[in-house]
């Protein structure tokens, strides 16, 4: 990239005023500084839902493989695999959105890409969990590596999940770097290890045009 284009680019980026930047910064940092009562209740509810899921899985693994979701010899995959397909498609849409917006060079996509990517990462993780929950012997998961047959569609499922997860993580992390840098600079009353973490994760990003290279 030549110096002129960088200069042109940098002027392009400065589309918001100082006031707008302060609003954005406040939006970013507010939930990290203080969680209000409504938020706390919501988090507690979600944790409860997660615990219910873990307990249901515990019942399934200890009592019988089919008690929780009524699996039988004919409906042997049931809701697990429909969930798997749903979550894989969801994460695909996340990747697709950021890819399309990136290829079309739309600048307004930047905040949206984070939403798309965090959905993609969460969905692909849940897809992997669905597969493992549907397996009869999750303790033998490593057999897929030891005895894996590349001809089998299941092995390609695993490869797809791993690739999606890695790609989504990278695509999530790259647009997060400026925000992590903001956290590092503006969240002062944090424990030392969190500040160190932000410093490490933000890669020393300063937002200067030289840094882009």
């Amino acid at each position: 990239m030549s110096k002129e284009t960088i200069k042109k680019d940098s002027t392009q980026y400065e589309t918001f005023t100082q006031e707008e930047y302060m609003i954005m910064k406040d939006d970013l940092l507010r939930p990290m500084r203080k969680i209000r009562l409504g938020g706390k209740i919501w988090i507690a509810f979600l944790v409860l839902v997660c615990c219910a899921g873990v307990y249901a899985y515990y019942i399934q693994e200890t009592k019988s493989k089919y008690v929780t979701v009524s699996l039988r010899d004919i409906t042997f995959w049931g809701v697990y695999i429909s969930n798997f397909v749903f979550f894989v498609a969801l994460s695909l849409v996340g990747v697709l959105m950021s890819a399309v917006l990136k290829l079309t060079n739309f600048e307004w996509y930047r905040p949206l890409s984070r939403i798309a990517e965090i959905i993609a990462v969460a969905a692909i993780m849940l897809a992997g969990v669905s597969i493992v929950a549907a397996m009869g012997r999750p303790d033998r998961l490593h057999y897929l590596i030891i005895h894996g047959r590349i001809q089998s569609p299941i092995v390609w499922d695993i490869i797809v999940i791993m690739t999606y997860l890695a790609t989504s993580m990278v695509l999530l992390y790259i647009p997060l770097i400026p925000s992590l840098s903001t956290c590092k600079n503006h969240l002062t009353n944090l424990p030392k290890w969190q500040l160190k973490m932000y410093k490490f994760l933000s890669f020393g990003w300063e937002g200067t045009p030289e840094g882009v290279m």
């Binding site: 493989k65 549907a134 012997r137 033998r140 089998s152």
Partner: peptide
């Protein structure tokens, strides 16, 4: 060695296979 993925049950056109659900 079976990991219980049940893909073979889906592949079998004759429904010959059963899964040990561990009743």
């Amino acid at each position: 060695r079976c990991i219980g993925c049940k893909f073979c049950m889906a592949a079998c056109p004759y429904s010959a296979r059963t899964f040990n659900f561990g009743r």
